[in-house]
Simulated assay, not measured.
Amino acid sequence: MPTAAFEVELMPRLGPAVADYPPGSTFGPRDARTYEFVWLLSGSATWLWDDLRVPLTPGTLLLVRPGMRDSFHWDPRRSTRHAYVHFTLRGGGDGGGDGGAAAGGVAAASGAAWPIVRDLGGRPDPMGALCQYLLWLGASCPPGWREQAAETLRLLVLTFLAPPPASPGDASGGLPEPVVAAMSAVRSAWSDGVARPVGLERLAATAGVSVSTLCRAFQRRFGLGPVAALERLRLARAEPLLWMSNLSLQAIAVQCGFADAYHFSRRFRAVYGVAPSAFRATPPQTAPPSPLVASGLAALEPLTPSL
């Protein structure tokens, strides 16, 4: 995927904008000369390139690359409305041909590895919002809108080419299946916002494995057993509460599932090396590192409810 070391240039008079096609319209074959994002707002279409026939529906984002000889067949039964924007990538050669080695920081991505379409809905990601913002910029044209649109497009390209994030409950990303399954018990226990302890037997039963099997899975992946791993998750939840709230240590202790401020402070000092009161007075940039980073426990955070 590309790095941040590239720039985007909008093509004059080629979006971001909206086009309406009557039923049965076609476009192409054409040789694409720029990059182009296309997303349907209503209706449907089929996009054809080489041997590919890609159905397009509202909520689908298509990326056309320079050098593609493609065509569109719009909905034969009703009008279709779609949004589009043409752009180039700058930084040392535009990729040409099959869209392979594109500008500067994009050179690491081969054309064949680039995705064709992405879903704008069904999972949390910013692409839908970025597309809406592009359309707003193109329609309202506030001062400096072209520069804002170029930066928005750059972020859209980065997000489009990034691997889709794993959804909660998905064992992808290297997490063992028993670990992912056990975290459903944590989601249930923490659903009211209180990160309370969850018993080892309950975790194993939810995962459908023995306690020893679950402990081995956690140890191999994180170097910690399930109970210790969850305690570090609970302690990490205290960080924003210490820095960005006026809550007492007792209130923070309860929110993080500890019986009282004394127990919370003792465990916090054991893991962070400083007392919670000292941590609260320390600027974030010089505070002790999170216990989730070195152990890889941050991978478990998406499987827990938000604060």
Results as ranks from 00 to 15, higher is better:
residue 208 G to C: 03
residue 209 V to Q: 08
residue 209 V to T: 11
residue 210 S to Y: 12
residue 210 S to E: 13
residue 210 S to H: 13
residue 210 S to V: 02
residue 211 V to W: 12
residue 211 V to I: 13
residue 212 S to N: 13
residue 212 S to E: 15
residue 213 T to P: 00
residue 216 R to E: 10
residue 216 R to P: 03
residue 217 A to I: 06
residue 217 A to D: 03
residue 218 F to A: 07
residue 218 F to T: 01
residue 219 Q to M: 14
residue 220 R to N: 01
residue 220 R to I: 01
residue 220 R to E: 05
residue 221 R to G: 02
residue 222 F to K: 03
residue 222 F to D: 04
residue 222 F to E: 01
residue 223 G to P: 05
residue 223 G to K: 06
residue 224 L to D: 02
residue 224 L to E: 00
residue 224 L to Y: 01
residue 225 G to L: 05
residue 225 G to D: 11
residue 226 P to I: 07
residue 226 P to T: 09
residue 229 A to C: 14
residue 230 L to H: 04
residue 230 L to T: 12
residue 232 R to Y: 13
residue 232 R to M: 12
residue 233 L to R: 11
residue 234 R to L: 02
residue 234 R to V: 08
residue 234 R to W: 05
residue 235 L to K: 00
residue 235 L to G: 00
residue 236 A to I: 03
residue 236 A to M: 03
residue 238 A to F: 14
residue 239 E to R: 11
residue 239 E to H: 01
residue 240 P to W: 10
residue 241 L to D: 04
residue 241 L to F: 06
residue 243 W to H: 15
residue 244 M to N: 14
residue 244 M to V: 07
residue 245 S to R: 14
residue 245 S to M: 13
residue 246 N to T: 13
residue 246 N to Y: 13
residue 247 L to V: 05
residue 248 S to C: 02
residue 249 L to G: 00
residue 249 L to H: 06
residue 249 L to E: 01
residue 251 A to E: 12
residue 252 I to Q: 09
residue 252 I to Y: 08
residue 252 I to C: 08
residue 252 I to H: 06
residue 252 I to F: 10
residue 253 A to D: 09
residue 253 A to L: 09
residue 254 V to Y: 10
residue 254 V to H: 11
residue 254 V to N: 07
residue 255 Q to K: 15
residue 255 Q to P: 07
residue 259 A to K: 04
residue 259 A to M: 05
residue 259 A to V: 02
residue 259 A to F: 00
residue 260 D to S: 13
residue 261 A to I: 09
residue 262 Y to V: 09
residue 262 Y to F: 12
residue 262 Y to N: 07
residue 265 S to I: 02
residue 265 S to L: 10
residue 266 R to S: 08
residue 266 R to L: 11
residue 267 R to Y: 02
residue 267 R to F: 06
residue 268 F to T: 04
residue 268 F to W: 09
residue 269 R to T: 01
residue 270 A to T: 02
residue 270 A to G: 04
residue 270 A to W: 06
residue 271 V to C: 03
residue 271 V to D: 01
residue 272 Y to G: 08
residue 273 G to C: 13
residue 274 V to F: 14
residue 274 V to K: 15
residue 274 V to P: 15
residue 274 V to M: 15
residue 274 V to C: 13
residue 275 A to K: 10
residue 276 P to E: 02
residue 276 P to Q: 00
residue 277 S to Y: 14
residue 277 S to W: 13
